[in-house]
Write a protein that binds this DNA or RNA. Structure first.
Length: 361
DNA sequence: CGTGCCGGGTA
DNA sequence: TACCCGGCACG
């Protein structure tokens, strides 16, 4: 049993590897690559099912979750590709999506875009010592094949913006895209738009799963979550609020010009908070307000249950006592004792503007 | 506003 | 590591 499972796992890995290699080939025509990707995903799903059949999986979960997990796995495999050095190359500039936001009167802060990347865009721009080659058109094809199938669909639906825009979409890089059901008390998270739509259609709207009456109503009941891969390591999570369709009406609604949907936690914030921020917990609260019933939950960066931030508001979590600095001692320090003119008599700590060692509190 | 000193920069 | 200093909080 174990041997058989190991065999299957190896085979599955091989398949995945093949899929990766296939996806990495940038010389093939785009259409062919897309088909290859689709085939690879199908293969992955089939293999996984075979593997699952050899594992004692509880029946209750087996069929319900299997499909989702397959998709998630496939999505993860493809998404993981996006961390390749090629794709991690920072963009020349970071306009694209932000520009459309700006059109709505929304001006994202510099760090809001940094949330997309694992590097700081600010320093990136100011640091000419780390040039990065622009992505060529071929790279885009390569890139495109590596992203989630649904993303491909989305891009196609959006009129091939991807190819017309010489700047790579940041969402393709370090962002994982998930879809969360916004239906009251549901919150189901799926990896594909089709999946979430089907979920909403069947579960919440009571329509048959394969019915053709897709009037797009489902779009209003789910949201796209972008998960930054760096999120967990930095102790921060950066969500990029995105409506189901990038430029769809909901996005306008969901991005009121309150400015509140600027980035989560940025340097400016850190600066403003000063030392308060040093002791601030690495969690913050997100408010989704595109639907009245959306809840406010703490964002646990280590949890898989990410909260979509359609409308993100930085709200300081209750700080315990706001004790960030020990109260100033009453005792005189070198500065007061000796005065500025006798600075050479100060203890080194005082000279270095550190905590006085000679007259500690 | 003076003071204490944290955090970060520089050599 | 030693040294320096910007800048912030406290009183």
């Amino acid at each position: 049993m174990m041997y058989e499972f190991g065999d299957q796992a190896t085979e599955w890995k091989t398949t995945a590897s093949t899929a990766l290699k296939t996806a990495s080939r940038a010389v093939e025509p785009e259409q062919e690559l897309k088909q290859e990707c689709a085939r690879s995903i199908c293969l992955l799903e089939q293999k996984r099912k075979v593997v699952s059949s050899n594992i004692d999986v509880p029946q209750a979960r087996k069929y319900e979750d299997e499909l989702d997990m397959d998709k998630v796995t496939a999505a993860m495999v493809l998404t993981s590709l996006s961390t390749s050095p090629l794709v991690r190359s920072p963009p020349i500039r970071h306009t694209d999506i932000n520009e459309s936001w700006r059109d709505c009167g929304f001006v994202p802060s510099s760090s809001s875009s940094s949330g997309y990347w694992s590097w700081n865009t600010t320093s990136d721009y100011s640091n000419p010592s780390t040039p990065s080659p622009p992505l060529s058109a071929d790279n885009f094809k390569h890139f495109r094949c590596m992203v989630h199938p649904d993303d491909i669909t989305d891009d196609t639906d959006n009129g091939n913006l991807f190819f017309e825009d010489p700047v790579p979409r940041k969402r393709k890089n370090s962002m994982k895209v998930m879809f969360k059901c916004l239906w009251k008390k549901c919150g189901k998270i799926l990896s594909t738009a089709a999946g979430i739509k089907k979920h909403i259609r069947t579960i919440h709207l009571g329509r048959s799963g394969d019915s053709d009456d897709c009037d797009g109503e489902e779009d209003f009941y789910y949201t796209e979550i972008r998960l930054n891969n760096e999120c967990g390591t930095e102790g921060l999570c950066s969500f990029s609020p995105v409506s189901p369709a990038l430029a769809s009406p909901p996005s306008t609604i969901l991005f009121p010009s309150t400015g509140s949907c600027d980035s989560i936690y940025n340097k400016t914030e850190s600066k403003l908070n000063g030392r308060l921020s040093r002791s601030a917990p690495n969690t913050f609260y997100l408010v989704q307000s595109d639907h009245p019933y959306q809840v406010c939950l703490p964002c646990n960066t280590n949890s898989e249950e990410y909260i979509p931030s359609v409308h993100t508001i930085r709200s300081s979590p209750p700080r315990a006592g706001v004790i960030t600095r020990k109260p100033r001692g009453e005792g005189k320090k070198c500065r007061k004792v000796y005065g500025m003119e006798n600075r050479d008599k100060w203890c080194t700590a005082c000279r270095w503007k550190k905590a006085c060692q000679r007259f500690p509190d």
